[in-house]
Write a protein that binds this DNA or RNA. Structure first.
Length: 127
RNA sequence: GCAGCUUAUUAGAUGAUCGCCCCAUGCUUAUUAAGAAAGUGUGGAGAGGAAAGUCCGGGCAGCAUAGAGCAAGACAGUCGCUAACAGCGACCGGGGGCAACCCUAGGGAAAGUGCCACAGAAACAAAACUACCCUUCAUAGCUUUGUGCGAAAGGAGGGAAAAGGUGAAACGAGUGGGGUAAAAGCCCACAGCAUGUUAUGGUGACAUGGCGUGAAGGUAAACCCUGUCCGCUGCAAGGAGAUCUGCAUUAAGAGUAGCUCGCUCGCAGGUCGAUAUCCGCUUGAUAUGGUAGGCAACUACUAGACUAGAUAGAUGAUCAUCCACGACAGAACCCGGCUUAUCGAUAAACUGCCAAC
RNA sequence: GGAGGAGUACCCAAGUGGCUGAAGGGGAUGGUUUGCUAAAUCAUUAGUCUGGGGAGACCUGGAGCGGGAGUUCGAAUCUCCCCUCCUCCG
């Protein structure tokens, strides 16, 4: 999980991201993001609908894996962002760790939240 | 050894690195003290047998310290257990299995009402219809020619409820004998059923036997009757600000239930501040061990223990090794059950068959 | 987390124990009408799964009212347990 200060608190702050954020998406994940100049720390949420995956255990598992990977990316962000990662396909549960990290890296780069070459350098360091 | 049956336990393990929530405690922001917040260090602890479905029951909270009557609803063998229950235990009756054992919404149909389609003579009150039997009328005919006898079909009167291609079910006591014009528990013997009473055993449901009486279709997960229980809403319950104006003080109105009573309460609006935070929130019908009681469910006493409390919601990620290659699945106020989902592994008791001693 | 409701043919739906071969409407298919279409009008329609027969057109048996049990002679309907979908709450 990510620290308490990097989470969203309350419903309305997430609604702001949904309404005003920019979106990048691929087949199974959508990322909405918006820059926030009032805060010192970025906030990140992972959203999985009960309709996409019925089992609570599997939803938790996806959420934890994404949170864990994104937690390591927080220091690399260019600025302070509010980010919502919305999972829209139940196939996401079957991805291996490398497949998952590739998809998220790709989306983060195309959103221009993190610089490309740094993201390539950091991943071997972490592992 | 094979096949089966019941119960209980368990629910991947170990290590490395990086992280999360809560609690305790130290330091810093910050040199009087106290409190709050943020950061940071150390230590402790961190999902289930079903956490699920929300199907029952209870605690707790608000409405009266939850009160009365009706309505509505739930339950249904007996005795016990329990805070309570539609639960559990033991037993009784019924059904299944060679057996261990399993299943069982199991009060009342002689209080009343309804329903029993189609088919069938008839669907529950008894009768009618067909067939059966007797008497009689009348006729063909026979004839000893006498107001003699008299078949079948037919008309009339009567008998009995034994027979009736249907149907889930047919008047609801079977078999054999007697009996009769023909029949029938009409009578007899044997066997069975219901009910009353009585004896024995059992707390009881009930079981076994004696005596008397009797002939009653099914359906109550149809209405209903009998007995027992039951107020409603649910932690999104509920609690925690400041201030001003108007109306009212009996009455009116409002509040919790479908209605009646009863009970309680002043009501309406504006402004500021919020749409959040804190409390409720985990020590409890608590689990574990021991002793005693009980066939058991369970209860009493005792010892030490504290074992999630989040709020976009904490147990994870990555890697390595091992094996049986890991099923179903994530607490949200808390308990007791039920039901449903579930890869396997282990242990114990018991039953049947086969073999050996 | 808690409370309530619904599920019948491709779609909308009626049906509260028995002749349901599942009413009715839309849709689909084929006629009539028109120079052609639309509209109107008439007729047909278990159309899903499965067993058997047939070269095929088609004929025929069974199941089937979200799924599974039970009560009953008989269940879309009554009872119980699941599944799916929808709505509400400070």
């Amino acid at each position: 999980m990510i620290p308490f200060s990097n989470r969203f608190h309350g419903h309305s702050s997430l609604n702001y991201v949904y309404k005003n954020g920019q979106a990048v998406r691929n087949r199974s994940v959508t990322i909405k993001y918006v820059a926030n100049k009032h805060r010192d720390k970025s906030r990140i949420a992972v959203v999985i609908s009960k309709k996409t995956l019925k089992s609570a255990v599997r939803r938790n598992l996806i959420r934890r894996r994404i949170y864990e990977y994104v937690r390591l990316k927080i220091p690399d962000l260019k600025a302070v962002y509010d980010i919502a990662i919305i999972v829209t396909s139940s196939d996401f549960i079957n991805l291996s760790h490398t497949e998952m990290s590739q998809q998220i890296d790709q989306l983060f780069f195309s959103a221009r939240i993190i610089p490309k070459n740094k993201s390539i350098k950091t991943t071997p360091k972490e592992s």
